[in-house]
Amino acid sequence: MGLLLACLFISNIAFAEIAVIVHPDNSASLDKKAIKKIFMGKKKKYDNGNVILPMNASKGAASRDSFNKLAIGRTTAQVNAYWSKLVFTGKGTMPRELTSDAEIIATVSANKDAISYVDASAVTDAVKVIATY
């Protein structure tokens, strides 16, 4: 029984709730399918024509691993391999990488076209949450 509880506790740590965030004035309506397309380089513009600026958490960040697994449905290694191929063939540019939830929130709150994700516990009123995983 103790082992089962320990496994449940660890799985909750591994997949903390992730909030997808945008600038508070961004009125775009994005469902989870569109969010996946954005972070896979398949959707590049909002409906208003503005270029979407996706931002990733840094490599090794728990929020990045959780986002990739929950939102994209792939491991971080699989997502990195996908992007390596796109970049190598000239068909895409990997989303910019930011070092912390605080930097992500600061960057998104300063740019109306940015979109990113953070641990849900890090969200402030400087950004708007459009989806959670």
Rank of each mutant, 00 (worst) to 15 (best):
F39I: 05
D125M: 07
V20T: 11
M94A: 14
R64S: 03
V22I: 14
T132P: 00
K33I: 14
S11K: 15
A61N: 15
G2A: 09
G92I: 04
S84P: 01
Y82N: 05
Q78V: 00
M55C: 10
D125V: 12
V20F: 11
S121I: 09
T89W: 03
I105W: 08
M1K: 06
T107G: 02
I10H: 03
S100A: 05
N68H: 03
T107H: 09
A110S: 15
K43F: 07
F15T: 00
E17P: 01
E17M: 02
N48V: 03
G90L: 07
L3I: 12
L53C: 08
A6S: 10
P54N: 08
N111V: 00
A19W: 01
K112R: 13
D119M: 03
D47W: 02
G2K: 08
A114P: 07
D113T: 15
K45Q: 13
N50A: 13
T124F: 13
D31T: 00
D31H: 00
S109F: 08
C7T: 08
K33N: 14
M1C: 04
L98H: 03
I105Y: 08
K44V: 04
S100D: 07
A102K: 15
T132G: 03
F67D: 01
A131Q: 11
D47T: 04
M94D: 03
G92R: 09
H23C: 07
I104D: 01
K91V: 04
S11T: 14
M55D: 07
D113H: 06
Y133G: 07
V129C: 13
E97Q: 14
T132D: 01
V127L: 09
T132F: 04
T89P: 00
F88L: 12
S116T: 00
S66H: 04
F67A: 00
I38K: 03
S29V: 15
N50E: 11
E103H: 10
D119C: 02
G90Q: 07
N48C: 01
P95F: 07
I130F: 12
Y46S: 05
R74S: 03
Y82T: 06
K69V: 02
L8K: 05
S27Q: 15
D119V: 02
P95V: 04
I18D: 01
Y117A: 03
A122S: 15
T75N: 04
K128R: 13
A122W: 03
A62H: 01
I21Q: 07
V51W: 12
M40F: 06
L53N: 13
I38G: 02
M94L: 13
L86T: 02
S116A: 13
A114F: 08
Y46K: 04
A34C: 05
N80P: 00
I115G: 13
K45N: 11
I21E: 06
N12A: 09
K91M: 11
N80Y: 02
S121H: 14
D65A: 03
